[in-house]
Design a protein around this nucleic acid. Structure first.
Lengths: 235, 235
DNA sequence: TAAACTTGTAGTCAATTAAACCATAAGATA
DNA sequence: TATCTTATGGTTTAATTGACTACAAGTTTA
């Protein structure tokens, strides 16, 4: 099959006219960031876009998204969820292609850029500094951010952006950054601790130039129990 | 193009390997129902499934879903939202086809079955009485119900299932039916009225064999305002 | 070494909200 | 008229929220 974007021959074992595109979120130094790739060839050469690719004939859409992430980041167990399908007739300039959007949350401590992707370069961008993107990727990114804001208030998915062990302040700053709100430290503590979702691991921060804060882990067990009867995350 | 399901020739102006399927919800006599169609020809003859169809080369996915609804029900302004794309490699027995799931909410008072769809018959089923469905439609329906439960607690979309004018008890029963919970009448009233989303139209029920309840309308204006700063619908 | 500074953690208090009730009103039916 | 059903208005208690104060535990600076 002829790749309508690069003009090269690609495997005939992929579905034509359907792709996936993934917004990969990371959290570093108090800022929410996304991983973008620079397209090396084809009509969009030199422009930045969301990582994406084709779906193979024999793999599910989810599997394709996981494969894409593995190829790009080397990570296996990434938090990944489908957003929706984007399918304006003119979204792709060289033909009718529908794309299935995904968003992923990665722990930056685990992440290392992997070379050899079909894009020449991959780079983290702060949300506010994202450049103009190819096709409808700006729209997909915007939708991803809205979705992240919504989801983070309904389930504790924010943990996927933090290291294994984190402080309550880090957690609060994550929420502040994603939701773009100011919060009160004592109130946040109380509210979050009451949910019983955090395990006190009896460790403290090291090498900080102030009083060291307690470190916590996320307790997935109680989360599962709470989820069943439905609960809320308003701050 | 050969329709892989019916074996008939269909217009070549549709995308191959992508379809849409739509869960249409209705509310009648206190029960949540879905509209299913019986397939008349092809390998799934005689079996029930969600209404679905192909996407034309020049229309957006959303437009295709709206067209499908118009063809099936004759209604133009239906509440419609995309769920997600379903794409297990083996979901469709005769080839690799990805489907984009939608769900719609209709007012039963507006609805009348429209003949001449590619299915021989269309019928409303109570959720608990839905028969075995073709392909992965049971899974799509299940996902739709979960999604409806989630959405109904985040935005007042339930109104789309009720007549223009309704009583507070009808509204409460709708929530009870969708969420499968028992609620307290006085508390529900107070909570809902406080949101200022209902307009008292100074009318009462007629022909009921008990004290007539006030009728209300949904106030879309205040809803738009409230939505901007985000609010919650827990009951 | 002491003071100043930074961040963590505990507690207080008024205002709001939620949940479980009880009570009465407004009809219709027997 | 009595009784039944549903509508609607209150009360009470406990829990939660939001704004704020205070102090603890370290580091850095003077």
């Amino acid at each position: 099959m002829l790749d309508i974007e690069s003009g090269e021959l690609i495997s005939t074992s992929v579905m034509s006219s359907i792709t996936i595109d993934c917004t990969i979120f990371g959290f570093e130094n108090g800022s929410l960031e996304v991983l973008l790739v620079k397209h090396a060839k084809g009509i969009s050469e030199g422009k930045w876009g969301l990582p994406g690719g084709w779906i193979q004939e024999v793999e599910s859409i989810d599997a394709a998204a996981h494969r894409l992430l593995r190829e790009l980041t080397g990570l296996e167990n990434i938090y990944l969820e489908q957003l929706k399908a984007f399918g304006e007739p003119d979204r792709f300039p060289l033909g009718r292609v529908i794309t299935v959007g995904y968003y992923a949350l990665v722990k930056r401590e685990d992440y290392s850029v992997k070379a050899g992707f079909t894009a020449s370069e991959a780079k983290w961008f702060k949300i506010a500094e994202v450049p103009e993107l190819i096709y409808d990727h700006t729209q997909i990114l915007e939708y991803s951010i809205q979705n992240l804001r919504k989801r983070v208030r309904q389930a504790p998915i924010g943990f996927n952006l933090l290291p294994e062990k984190f402080t309550l302040l880090q957690l609060m700053q994550l929420y502040q950054e994603i939701l773009k709100v100011e919060m009160d430290k004592p109130n946040f503590r109380r509210k979050f601790l009451r949910m019983k979702l955090l395990v006190d691991i009896n460790e403290k921060q090291k090498d900080v130039s102030h009083r060291a804060a307690k470190l916590y882990k996320f307790d997935n067990n109680t989360y599962q129990k709470l989820t069943e009867k439905g609960f809320n995350f308003e701050f």
